[in-house]
Design a binder for these strands. Structure first.
Lengths: 161, 161
DNA sequence: CATATATGTCAACATGACTGACATAAAAAC
DNA sequence: GTTTTTATGTCAGTCATGTTGACATATATG
């Protein structure tokens, strides 16, 4: 075996390092999503609703196709949550002007308020983590995260210029 | 409005920065989990099975309670997937020696093989991202991710000594 | 005019979470 | 040594969120 004397096996270290990454992602996502769930439950909503509200709030006047492309779910799955959100007045749909087949999505005042309330927790979590880690670490975080994402979606996160 | 002349509003930048973090986490997790799903489907398993296999592989002889504490799901939910994995010979249970109420969990050969196959994709994804980002960025990534995790679970990821 | 596209809808199903109630065996406390 | 707590399992029912497949409508495009 390699490095019996030093007790360090570089391959083992690498394996350890990679598994740590996997676990960091698991735990971070678990805790990151747990907080808004409490609020969502009060509205009778789930995580899927949060995702829709989030991305519609982030990309006003986005089309259903665009949203489907981000969420990577089927239109039938989206239809249920989106339908509820429209029905209950959190999101409005209006036909596109250039292409009248499109249903452009937008948050209502009520939707904006819920989005703010939901995302606030997550923003606070990031703000704390960023502050404690420092600017340089944040840059490293971005770099690695960007590299984890499928190539098609990396342009959504332009690197440092 | 602040900084009309420079066109820079620091509060807006901060908001942008935090939202980018939120989105990085969403996309990374989405793509990170998508790959093993293909293999799991061939076995008639889902993501929940992968999580159980992963953590049992990582912590041999772990108890059911420990596993529940990591996954943060109910024992009823765990019971189904764990039961299947035991039934189909991927995991074995044996009573603890110190405390004979415990059922210590362990991967079988078959389980180890499946774990390897499943996690390999994710390890490769991390390996590439780490390599492209560089050692310093990886350190920043770790720092931020650790800060995102609930305080109780941070000791699982000791900082740099 | 024919075809492709954007969207929606109906139906059936699978997975993985939940709550609540109850059961058993072993450890720990008194 | 009896009582209580703990670790685990199980039965039953429900819900949220994903899937596939088929079909419908309106509009854009060739």
């Amino acid at each position: 075996m390699t490095d019996i004397k030093t007790g360090i096996n570089p391959l083992f270290l690498r394996e350890e390092e990679l598994r740590q990454g996997i676990e960091l992602l698991f735990y971070a996502y678990r805790d990151f999503t747990a907080e808004p769930d409490v609020i969502l439950a009060q509205y009778g909503f789930g995580r899927a609703h949060h995702r829709v509200i989030y991305f519609v709030g982030r990309n006003p006047a986005m089309t259903v196709s665009e949203l489907l492309g981000i969420l990577r779910i089927t239109k039938q799955s989206l239809s249920r949550v989106l339908g509820q959100l429209v029905e209950e007045g959190f999101i409005t749909q209006r036909p596109g002007t250039r292409d009248r087949r499109q249903r452009l999505l937008e948050l209502t005042e009520k939707g904006i308020e819920l989005e703010r309330q939901l995302t606030e927790r997550q923003r606070t979590r990031f703000a704390r983590a960023y502050r404690e880690a420092g600017a340089e670490a944040v840059e490293g975080f971005r770099k690695v995260m960007r590299g984890l994402i499928d190539e098609v979606d990396r342009p959504r996160f332009p690197g440092r210029r």
